[in-house]
């Protein structure tokens, strides 16, 4: 059965969007960036999203999380319920997670204080200090992050790789049902890539799903996606498996330009 036939509130679907269109303000006008995306992710599935620079991948991910600067049309479904009218924190509390391509620094706020507040909000209950400390230490060990980072200010002065590791550490702690991972592999050295991939795999299970945005095959070899999408000019132009990744590695994106044009035409 084709995934697109599955109803977004089917129990086996963890995440879906239908005819998603995302507009940004462009002076007095609006600019359409994401031009009608249908996506269905079943529980236990890992999807990869590849596409050229500027095609709208980060815009799609941020809009799904509820970024306030976008106007969004279409439905977004998380675990059988519409979430597109919810605030970002409400989506997050229901289990949506976004690993940022460029995680934001919050000077003056320690990683520990931030994580404690975040976890309490996700779980709906304060976490006793000792239990929290233990959980934190384990997660830091899993992600091979030095415990001294616990008392540093959030992402403040972190290297690119350190920021990405902390994103996946948060994914491990928050246990989301669906994760949007926006180029979490970019800028990682070989060891860090392995740690991050293992973290992602550890956080994945039969009940949840993820969408991994990437430019590279390497992380996909570790994470082993079930479905690969090619995203161009605001459209999903091709969906397949790992064989698509090899084709892209060899041929780039140009050979799919025709399909992008067809997608554009069918939406017009």
């Amino acid at each position: 059965m084709s995934d697109q036939m599955l109803s977004p509130d089917h129990p086996s679907v963890v995440f879906a969007c239908r005819n998603l269109r995302v507009f940004v303000k462009d002076g007095d006008n609006e600019k359409l960036i994401v031009r009608g995306v249908d996506l269905t992710v079943r529980r236990g599935e890992k999807h990869a999203l590849m596409g050229p620079n500027g095609s709208g991948k980060s815009t799609l991910a941020a809009a799904l999380m509820g970024h306030p600067s976008y106007r969004v049309e279409g439905d977004i479904w998380l675990e059988g319920e519409r979430v597109d009218t919810l605030e970002p924190h409400e989506r997050a509390r229901r289990g949506l997670f976004l690993s940022f391509q460029y995680p934001v620094a919050v000077p003056g706020v320690t990683v520990a204080n931030f994580l404690r507040a975040s976890l309490a909000a996700r779980r709906g209950a304060e976490i006793p200090v000792r239990a929290f400390r233990q959980e934190l230490n384990e997660a830091f060990a899993t992600m091979s992050i030095d415990p001294s980072f616990i008392t540093r200010y959030l992402n403040d002065g972190f290297s690119g790789g350190e920021k990405k590791k902390l994103e996946i550490l948060q994914m491990l702690l928050l246990k989301p049902s669906f994760s949007l991972l926006d180029e979490t592999d970019s800028g990682l050295d070989i060891d860090a890539l392995k740690i991050v991939s293992e973290g992602i795999n550890l956080a994945s299970g039969p009940q949840n799903g993820l969408l991994l945005v990437t430019h590279y095959q390497r992380i996909l070899n570790h994470v082993q996606p079930d479905v690969v999408h090619v995203f161009m000019n605001g459209h999903l132009v091709r969906t397949g498996g790992m064989e698509l990744v090899s084709a892209l590695e060899e041929r780039g994106y140009d050979w799919l330009a025709d399909e992008a044009a067809v997608a554009e035409g069918s939406r017009a």
């Binding site: 999380m65 306030p68 997050a92 940022f100 919050v106 000077p107 003056g108 931030f114 200010y153």
Partner: peptide
Amino acid sequence: QLFYLESRCLDPREALGLVVGGFLEN
């Protein structure tokens, strides 16, 4: 900063509280 914190489950008021607290911290 607010969006980042909100994407981590903090409601807008909690997020603003952290950002202001961070501003005053040093």
